[in-house]
Design a protein around this nucleic acid. Structure first.
Lengths: 204, 204
DNA sequence: GTCTATAAGAGGATAGAC
DNA sequence: GTCTATCCTCTTATAGAC
């Protein structure tokens, strides 16, 4: 009897938690980590700031978990692409990069400060985050090597460098500027970005 | 007699001003606008924070003037390149992009928040900054058009998009990560970045 | 768990003495 | 112009009543 009540409570709390996460996720994408305040999150989710802290112990934890959500989506996409052995490695990289940039354009990619921040340290100490980041880099690394073997990516480039290039596209400021311009469709922007990434500004 | 004294004073103040500017410039490159505090600047330049405000009315003004310095350097480089009509437009773009990325790698490129910031508004209201930004875009726009006519840059890409791509390279996070890695020389990193920008990840 | 109220501290900017 | 000592606001986080 008591256990029925408590299970219900747990579910309600899980929903609360998810609602907070959703609001934070969106705000992190819209304003970025530093500009987002816990008051913003509280207001959007519709509860007091003190209550937020019953679910998430800190702003950093909120950001880390938002990144975990996105990284899990990326890992899921990777696994779905790996099921089809017909697709070339470079096309897998292309699709994942497109997905990341699309997420950014749709306002669903959290933007966190890269360096020189207290957050960076907290992230590196956050096991769930680090685990997923390593898993992602591992799997992408395999594709990069394969694409280089296939001569679809220049084998002269260090694999790390290629990986960083792909990660960097998901926070490329060009995306925001082109979107704000308003003259171009989302797909058109993505096509151009991918074209430049893989074949450069030069005609192909 | 009084005028001799006052001219000397002016020169001393000009030097003070430049010293402040130099410290701020370096800090803006190291930590970025948000992480840099006026206390940081005061400490590095070796004077009290209150004294800073006798020379610069606000943190925003400090950032705007730092950008003006960099933009002036870019404009000077452009004019020196324009003196040689032998050089193709795309090579001018390449050289300017290389200079910008090199400046970033050397820790001399101020990094300001791009969007969603009180600073953005202040910058757009800052005439010296806007003037130079427009002049820069104008001159680069000519090169971009010429490079497209020469078929060195894909004529199917909007000129604005190409311009944004070049601007974005000067704050590309890949630069910092590759530098921190420590295994690669500055010139090697720049070569790879330019290769990807103009001919893509694919072999050429 | 929810709230109101508040602590604690950072950081931009200024007052006022010299 | 230079300093020390503050002011003031914003923001993270918590105390304590219900």
């Amino acid at each position: 009897m008591n256990s029925v009540k408590s299970r219900l409570k747990e579910q309600v709390n899980a929903l609360r938690s998810q609602a907070i996460m959703a609001s934070a996720h969106k705000l992190l994408a819209e304003k970025g980590y530093e500009a987002m305040t816990m008051d913003d999150v509280a207001e959007r989710v519709g509860m007091s700031k003190a209550s937020l802290y019953k679910f998430f112990p800190s702003k950093e934890e909120l950001a880390a978990q938002a990144m975990v959500v996105v990284l899990d989506e990326a890992l899921a996409l990777i696994d779905s692409l790996r099921d089809d052995p017909e697709v070339k490695a470079v096309d897998c990289l292309r699709r994942l990069t497109r997905w990341a940039m699309q997420t950014k354009l749709d306002g669903e990619m959290p933007s966190l400060p890269a360096q020189n921040s207290a957050l960076s340290e907290a992230l590196l100490a956050h096991e769930p985050y680090v685990d997923r980041l390593l898993a992602l880099s591992m799997k992408l690394g395999v594709w990069v090597s394969q694409a280089q073997t296939d001569h679809d990516v220049d084998p002269g480039l260090p694999a790390d460098f290629v990986l960083y290039q792909l990660y960097a596209r998901s926070c490329d400021p060009v995306l925001g500027v082109m979107k704000d311009d308003g003259r171009y469709s989302r797909d058109q922007i993505l096509d151009w970005m991918l074209q430049v990434q893989f074949t450069g500004l030069a005609p192909h």
